[in-house]
């Protein structure tokens, strides 16, 4: 039973994390290769506060705020760059984050932070809480997609210049997506820190960024259910089948390539196509 609880908690956190990237990549077409940095910023914030004695629930809001604030700054800086350049920029941010954290003794340097206090919710309670947050955010995403905001994001993903020429303040919308996406990644990071109760810089590196991007692309960029499903599945794959853990970057790299090449719409696109055929 304890094993299943761990699996489900891991899934819920990954779903939340992947959906947060989907808010940026899927909603306004901005590919990020450094999303793990925001996850990490939230994890470190939450862990430090918990170590300082703050109750778990009160660490999540600052985790989101810190990650969102960094996200907003990165967003501002990347407004001028587009498409593939944005991927490179965010990748740089990811490396910068790791590099900085490694140097900070307060953050535990290479060794990271261990013995993060328990949440006090119990294993089942924490699992339910993580699942609840993931479901809540999924619901929010569905709502946004149906609103005029989602309509605008679809147009920005389609063509920024056209969106601008019909009077849409494109930069403002992109910044909002960045802020929300990175803040939620920070909250997911806070959950992660309290789930494993030990964090180190390596947990938030390039491999993690590629992993979460693979979840979004395999699921079908922009598709909330597709991404949630892919995140749930891919997050527990290494737990079920240990050797995968060693070849993660290879596997996810291959998955990314295969999806881009053969089914750019991801699983969601594949399902839609199969439905169309039948």
């Amino acid at each position: 039973m304890a094993y299943e609880i761990t699996l489900l908690t891991t899934m819920a956190i990954s779903v939340l994390f992947a959906l947060s990237l989907n808010f940026i990549s899927g909603f306004c077409g901005q590919i990020s290769l450094g999303h793990a940095a925001f996850y990490g910023a939230g994890a470190y914030t939450s862990a430090m506060l918990a170590k300082a004695g703050a109750p778990f629930l009160l660490t999540l809001l600052p985790a989101g705020l810190v990650a969102g604030a960094i996200g907003l700054i990165v967003g501002f800086a990347s407004l001028r760059v587009r498409h593939d350049f944005l991927a490179i920029t965010t990748m740089g941010v990811g490396f910068l984050f790791i590099g900085l954290v490694r140097q900070q003794d307060v953050l535990g340097g290479e060794l990271g932070i261990s013995a993060i206090p328990s949440t006090g919710l119990g294993k089942i309670g924490f699992m339910a809480f993580a699942m609840g947050l993931a479901a809540l955010f999924a619901g929010f995403c569905v709502y946004v997609k149906r609103s005029w905001m989602g309509f605008v994001y679809d147009s920005i993903a389609d063509n920024e210049d056209v969106s601008e020429i019909i009077g849409i303040p494109v930069s403002r919308y992109k910044l909002i997506a960045f802020a929300i996406g990175t803040a939620v990644a920070g909250v997911a990071g806070g959950l992660y820190a309290h789930h494993v109760r030990f964090i180190a810089p390596d947990s938030f590196g390039f491999v993690e960024s590629v992993t979460v991007l693979a979840m979004v692309i395999v699921g079908g960029i922009g598709s909330i259910w597709g991404v949630a499903f892919a995140a749930a599945f891919l997050s527990v794959l290494p737990l079920w089948f240990q050797p995968i853990d060693d070849f993660k970057i290879l596997l996810y790299g291959a998955l990314l390539f295969a999806m881009m090449r053969f089914s750019p719409g991801g699983l969601a696109g594949l399902v839609a196509r199969l439905r169309g055929v039948s």
Partner: peptide, 29 residues
């Protein structure tokens, strides 16, 4: 420069929604 993901109608609907799209909060609500 049509928005290719939208039908002709949706292309024009988005444009006609200026009162809603100008402010992201209004758009969200």
């Amino acid at each position: 420069q049509p928005l290719h993901a939208f039908t002709l109608l949706e292309n024009v609907v988005l444009s006609a929604g200026g009162a809603k799209t100008g402010n992201p909060i209004t758009a969200l609500l």
